[in-house]
Design a protein around this nucleic acid. Structure first.
Lengths: 264, 264
DNA sequence: TACTGCATTTCATAGAATGAAAGAGTATTG
DNA sequence: CAATACTCTTTCATTCTATGAAATGCAGTA
């Protein structure tokens, strides 16, 4: 009911009430991810709005597959997610294709290039190449960031309808990210203008960080991937960063072919 | 039916035929992970032994939650696995506790220390600290390795029943790892003797690599975690490596408290 | 144009998922 | 130490959902 996700409340235009148990299981799983500590059965049942027996049965199956671990009476995300993530990073055609492309942009511009994917009302970092140091220690792959803040987020909202922006604004206040309440209109004001195909951000997600981003077009009108260049304010001006937008566009175009073309 | 996992054929002693749709969904998901390229609907349906409509419905729900991505008519593991993996690595009490402990052992011994978790008939690397270089680039977290080869695998089988070893031997031949067919008896011969609490391996998983491992005891008699020290043959002899077993034992003991104690 | 293979929708039926309630186990409290 | 409160677990009858056969749609191919 109170999910951050798409399934229950909104965005499910053509969907039906199908696969209830599976949907519920995925809600339990999502809830475990949100939690920063192991959860008791009754907590999960209450949070997800389902009965104790149902929650227990779900957890047992998830546990059989390693998606959930149990110690004592508390449940948490299980080790099976690691091979899954590894599979995604190794074999996803978009991610695999993105790495050399990001590398090229990062080298050309001497900045950090990142690829984000939209998931629900958030975005996820799925690939990153640093301009100078080849790789960072705490590479925050998989980090969940808001759509409402940062160039890579805002460009994904550029094509959003008024209704969708409304949902985003609501989700932003519920979903415990940093900058809380704003109206849909206030949000729209920060987004790229209708003509622009890139977004710019300064000091939004983190102070002293500038970024520009473009969307990766897909077959639908709503892109769900974007690539961004980020730089500390010390080493770039707004104008310099925006001067790299053509490079970004070209990179996005190459990635876009993967999503458009019918053959891999 | 032909799953690498526990659910269907064996190991399900106290389980019932419950949560069929969820189990099937997880099989589809597991199958997508095994595949190195995007899968068509009909492939998945055939491989998992279910009808096309059912498979399609499952994929749609998984897609709603980002666990699966679709481009054109092919499906693959989706980006939602990344935050899940991140959650596991950041918040799992065992993994979090293990890192400083592994660090200490690695420093003391100047070798690589690793933590594995058993999952089905495989083991997964969930934490690793290198003796000298603080971190490696291709840190193979989440890598799936056989139980039958390598010290960290063999020690997890030390307490296995004859029946279980039989299953392992069968699974090993089906599950496409390197060294193929051996009987349960041949396997048993390579395992630690009944008295020993550690396993040793030389040139098993990779030539020129020595390793010792101990299990992390939990409440059941069957440990599902093990920690290992590995070293290139150039920088260690069998005797030297085995001399570090007491260190390993101590580390395992500290981790074991987490699994035993009723309070985190 | 007809054909072939795959994806998708429809629909009646079987069977699984569900929650109430009872039971068991454990911690908490007086 | 006994009584209490709490959470977990099992059972079971009912409901509703998950299921696959078959029909339909949709491309590519001959």
């Amino acid at each position: 009911m109170s999910s951050t996700h798409s399934a229950s409340s909104a965005e499910d235009g053509p969907k039906a009430a199908n696969m209830r148990s599976l949907s519920r299981a995925l809600e339990v799983f999502a809830e475990l991810q949100r939690a920063e500590r192991p959860q008791r059965l009754s907590d999960l049942a209450r949070t997800c709005g389902m009965s104790l027996p149902t929650t227990l049965r779900i957890l047992r199956v998830l546990q059989d597959f390693g998606m959930v671990s149990q110690t004592d009476k508390t449940y948490r995300v299980g080790p099976a997610v690691l091979p899954a993530a590894r599979s995604f990073l190794e074999y996803d055609p978009l991610v695999v294709a993105a790495r050399p492309i990001l590398q090229q942009v990062a080298t050309q511009t001497a900045r950090t290039a990142s690829l984000y994917t939209r998931l629900g009302f958030e975005r996820i970092l799925v690939a990153r190449v640093d301009g100078d140091s080849p790789l960072r220690y705490d590479l925050p792959l998989g980090k969940r960031l808001p759509l409402t803040v940062g160039a890579a987020g805002k460009i994904l909202l550029a094509s959003a309808t008024a209704e969708e922006l409304q949902q985003v604004a609501v989700a932003a206040s519920t979903s415990g990210h940093e900058g809380a309440g704003f109206t849909a209109d206030e949000l729209r004001a920060r987004l790229p203008l209708p003509g622009e195909d890139f977004a710019y951000s300064a000091d939004e997600r983190a102070t002293g960080v500038l970024s520009v981003a473009v969307a990766v077009p897909n077959r639908t009108g709503r892109p769900s991937e974007s690539i961004a260049l980020t730089s500390p304010v010390e080493t770039a001006t707004e104008a310099e960063l925006k001067a790299s937008v053509p490079e970004l566009r070209r990179a996005a175009g190459r990635l876009s072919e993967l999503l458009m073309g019918s053959v891999y």
